[in-house]
Simulated scan of single mutants.
Amino acid sequence: MQNKNKTVVRSMDLLNLFLTHSKLNMNEMAQLSGIPKTSVHRMMGSLEEMGFLHKDKNGHYSLGLLFLQFGNLVAERLDIRHIALPVMERLRSEIGEAVHLVLRDGNESIYIEKLDTDHPVRLFTKIGKKAPLYAGASSRTILAFMPEEERETYLEEIELLPIGSGTIISKDKLRQSLELTRETRYSFSRSELENYTAELSAPIFNHACDIVAALSIAGLEVQFGEGQMPVLIDKVVKAAHDISRKLGYQEST
């Protein structure tokens, strides 16, 4: 940590502002970041010159097209995305719900692939969306199969905050849910990240039997009725297992 270059760190602080703002001027960036305006001016000039930022005629900055190039390269080089995509397409055609591929990113999960549904009323998610590891079926699937010591450290340190009306905010209940996920090999959530929505997820393992991702289907709560669940669970678990096998996973006997 102590070897971090101060200018690089501050530049990242400025770029991170654009995760939640589409456009910002110099004064707004200085105010939001707490970095002196002279330093902001110097760094923004360099970032613009290198193509990381674009400045319009009104003096507002936005992310440059270089990020699109980098983003596409990252997506293309994620082998699991290419391996999972045909299975995800099959799953979507079978059930007609949105299908997601989710990875761990530190103490969060991140959506790296999505196949949308044809339903006129649908759940809005996008590639790059993040969620805490304790909330939502995909996140909880990843958390459930993390190494026990690492999982317990996370559970001890994290503060469970409500996001949707169904978010689990009791650590006892969360531990029970994680245990159930490990037993059944799937996780289900209602209104945890967004009210009136549901998500059903199953784990994806690699050749070393480590959790590497979660596969999920998601949509409006009403589309996940009791009568539909057995079929949906079977199809999602099977699809996740098919991807795991393609990654070299072999179930222990």
Rank of each mutant, 00 (worst) to 15 (best):
L19M: 11
G64F: 00
G34L: 13
S46N: 10
E49V: 09
V99W: 01
Q31G: 06
A75I: 10
D79E: 15
L73W: 04
R104E: 06
D56I: 03
E48W: 01
E48S: 14
L19P: 00
R42M: 04
G51A: 15
M50I: 15
A30F: 00
L65A: 04
L66D: 05
N25S: 08
E94F: 09
N27M: 15
L63P: 03
I95K: 00
V74S: 08
I80V: 14
Q69C: 05
L85K: 14
V102F: 05
G34R: 12
L53E: 00
H41P: 01
S62H: 05
L91E: 15
L103V: 03
L17S: 07
K57M: 07
M29W: 01
M44E: 03
L91G: 03
H100D: 05
L19G: 10
V102N: 04
L91R: 05
S93G: 06
M29V: 02
N72S: 11
R81G: 01
E89Y: 00
R90C: 07
P86E: 06
K37W: 02
G96P: 03
A75P: 02
R42H: 07
R90M: 07
L85P: 08
L32C: 13
T20K: 14
A75T: 07
F67S: 07
A84Y: 03
H60V: 03
R92K: 15
S93D: 11
E28I: 05
L17Y: 00
S62T: 07
F18T: 15
I35P: 13
F18V: 15
S93N: 15
N27R: 09
L101M: 03
F70C: 07
Q31M: 13
E48H: 14
L53N: 02
R77A: 06
E94H: 13
K23P: 04
H100G: 11
Q69F: 06
V102K: 09
D56F: 00
A75Y: 11
G96Y: 15
V102S: 02
A30Q: 04
L24K: 10
L32R: 10
L101R: 06
H60G: 04
L63T: 13
M88K: 13
K23Q: 05
V102T: 15
L17P: 01
M88P: 11
I35W: 00
G59M: 02
L73E: 13
L65N: 08
E94Y: 13
H21G: 10
H100T: 08
D79K: 14
N58K: 14
L24H: 08
N58D: 06
L101W: 03
E28K: 15
L47M: 14
L65V: 04
L65I: 04
R77F: 13
N58T: 12
V102G: 01
N72C: 10
I80G: 02
P36L: 02
G34N: 09
F67T: 03
Q69Y: 08
M88Q: 11
G71H: 05
G96L: 05
R104K: 12
H100L: 09
S93H: 13
Q31C: 14
A98N: 08
V87P: 02
H100M: 15
V87D: 09
E97P: 00
L24D: 05
M43T: 09
H60M: 08
L78R: 14
A98H: 05
K23C: 08
